[in-house]
Amino acid sequence: MTILSTDHAHSLVGTDFSEKNLKAVLNGLPGVDAVGLEARAADLGTRSIKTSSKAWAIDKIISLIDLTTLEGADTPGKVHSLAAKGMLPDPSDTATPRVAALCVYGDMVGHAVDALGTLHGDPDAGLISIAAVATAFPSGRSSRAIKLADTRDAVAAGADEIDMVIDRSAFLSGRLGLVFEEIQAVKQSCVRTDGTSAHLKVILETGELNTYDNVRMASWLAMLAGGDFIKTSTGKVAPAATLPVTLLMLEAVRDWHAQTGQKVGVKPAGGIRTSKDAIKYLVTVSETVGEEWLTPHLFRFGASSLLNDVLLQRQKLSTGHYSGPDYVTID
């Protein structure tokens, strides 16, 4: 018998997912002391990753990247170029791993499918999946019907993963039930006609949640509602991903796993631009939830410019001298 993610939620909330019951669970979560959280994140950031560990980390980072373009000015050509980069990040070294996924707007999914061709597939198998942002990304300001249609369209076009945004306004005004229902509804919309389902990443937009306590609560709400991943940010709001926020979400995922046995993924997105920063995230994952989380179905970087910095570092490691931006491709 398969255990549905709602079963986990039922085990924690009870049979009735009323807002009152949800709040009872969420308000029972331990508080977060911001100073202590940030101090712990800073401490993790002081790990010194050298030589063989660094080489491993750099390849791992590449394989965890959701290579992203989310601009109004995106074109099919841009998406093709992004796909090319994702498939062969460094033409001078074909041993360079591929990225985990391309992350695009829903209307670009078809172009991404075309561009990836036979390399479109499960990143755990070394292929590249397609993630689409949906639900009136990034603001989430539209009707439920449009959000669900947005999701269905992207899935139908071939998206393997849906990056949805939560209704921050509802969350902040205390309508947690509404947020919960919406995530569940989007999750339903991820189901394909053959019964399989696109993976759902729930973007909390932590930069708008104001407090760490809210981030923890939103993380749990998203997991209760069936999110496969919790994601920090759209990248359109500052601050986007930060190490303390990601640490906190990893702690939530760890605690959720301890209580339900289910592994939920984490995706920091936006603002991670250097391999030095990305390595801090790898350290944080390893020392918080364990190294087993460093796999594409449990951890991703949502990033665009990160890849090139990582490639420069990779070249430095393999050649022994510093490389320059002219030696990696801009797209």
Binding site: R47, S48, I49, K50, T51, S52, S53, K54, W56, A57, K60, L282, S286, E287, E291, L294
Partner: peptide
């Protein structure tokens, strides 16, 4: 390899 066995950084 295990990432957590960070290479020596003396």
């Amino acid at each position: 390899m295990s990432f957590l066995e960070y290479a020596p950084a003396p």
